[in-house]
Write a protein that binds this DNA or RNA. Structure first.
Lengths: 255, 255
DNA sequence: CAGTGGTCTAGACCACCTT
DNA sequence: AGGTGGTCTAGACCACTGT
């Protein structure tokens, strides 16, 4: 195996076109994975061995590997090694009709679990006061949870609500909307904003991906029938595991 | 100015909690920007000077700065310096009704321009053959363009169509849908899939962002009234400049 | 030409996982 | 205990940008 790799590294890294060494090495490793010389889950040689094989310094190896880890091709485990990433089964979520996370996953035969890392009443930020239309002195209820499907962390959700809607957030256990339903504050409409950003270190750790991995950023504002804002949620979905799907009618559009 | 910075670096970097040096330095620079000691567009001291100020090696400075550049807080210009990034005005696009890129931007008073980097007929990939339902021997028309608003690159679009629909792609100049309209192949419906991923080096260069910056990945399949697939487009939108917005009706959902 | 970021090296020590 | 990735250093040269 190391012999086949040598073709891609020592021969490959030097020969493969021009450019900086770390880029040539990066392409060499990519080629080795694409060619199947390294399969999913396989361990790469240690960074020190790679440095020897490719005849570059370890710093250069780390630069090449870092890029490939960021793009999701490789995974590093401290003290253990560097491995070709396992293919991730991606999960889809519809954007036209908002179905529940739990229902969505159940329909796909996935076991869902939530892990709360934050449930409590807090002094609101100015953003929360404005978005939720809080009155002076009113507290804000915050719910932070890690969403998992089949044991894999998929998303981080941080919801903010008026403390009046949810006076005991620490008792929340299952569905937030169910709890809202009980106090007659079930939203009927939501506006969702989708963007992308790199995960910060703590969110990356929670989601079990490398620091600096990309994520889908979802901000949702939910409204009551009266038009009043009930809930403001900011979520982070693992970009390597999640797709949002929308169906569009092309009315008078000229693209 | 360097005097105020020193508070955040020499004093700051060493004092600011524990953890690796590059993380402390990163936090110090973040703090300096948040505190307004460094405003948008301001130049940071050179990496060598930062290394002296914070009393770390240049490698460590570069590691801290790289992270901040990836997150969009700083921008590096080779031969020139490192600067606090200018705030980017974000652009929204609706997902419920697909309006045209050009119209959308015009409504916001933005001048739109497209730059083609690829227009031609090619041998289809197997993905194109399957998605577009091409018959044997049929060529595929590919349109690759860089979308810009007010001179700023916003997105890269790569569209694939049957060569029969668009036999002379190199003549395409304006709207693709307009061209399709002329041959009676105007789509009436589309499915759009939204995810996120890091930009590769060449796309990052086209979009004028740093290599490894995050992007929104949009895949769209457009259908004729007959149900036949007309077009398959894969786009990359700058994550620091683009939001997709969807309105949702919460039918029977339990979140 | 001087100054900046970009690449690269050889070697060191630490933190962590495995056995 | 031995091997792995994580951090860090001091110094070098290159490529690019400005004057």
């Amino acid at each position: 195996m190391t012999e086949a790799l040598r073709q891609f590294l020592s021969g490959g890294a030097a020969a493969r076109g021009g450019g900086p060494l770390y880029l040539r090495l990066r392409r060499s490793i990519e080629s080795a994975v694409e060619a199947g010389v390294l399969g999913p889950g396989d361990a790469l040689p240690s960074e020190r061995d790679l440095a020897d094989l490719a005849d570059v310094s370890r710093v250069t190896v780390r630069k090449a590997v870092r890029d490939l880890v960021a793009h999701g091709l490789l995974k590093r485990r401290q003290g253990s090694g560097t491995f070709v990433a396992l293919p991730v089964e991606r999960v889809e979520q519809s954007l036209s009709v908002l179905t529940s996370f739990t229902e969505d996953m159940a329909r796909r035969g996935l076991a869902v679990r939530s892990e709360f890392f934050d449930r409590g009443l807090y002094e609101p930020t100015s953003e929360e006061t404005m978005t939720l239309g809080l009155s002076a002195g009113e507290k804000v209820a915050r719910i932070g949870r890690l969403r998992m499907a089949n044991g894999n962390p998929l998303a981080i959700e941080r919801a903010s609500l008026s403390g009046r809607m949810l006076p005991h957030p620490e008792e929340l256990d299952g569905s937030l909307y169910e709890a809202l339903d009980k106090v007659g504050a079930r939203p009927v409409r939501a506006i969702q904003r989708i963007s992308a950003a790199l995960l910060d270190d703590s969110d990356a750790a929670r989601l079990g991906v490398s620091s600096g991995a990309p994520s889908l950023v979802i901000e949702r504002i939910s409204y009551l029938a009266s038009g009043k804002v009930v809930e403001f949620t900011r979520s982070r979905y693992r970009a390597d595991a999640y797709d949002f799907v929308a169906e569009l009618r092309l009315a008078e559009s000229h693209l």
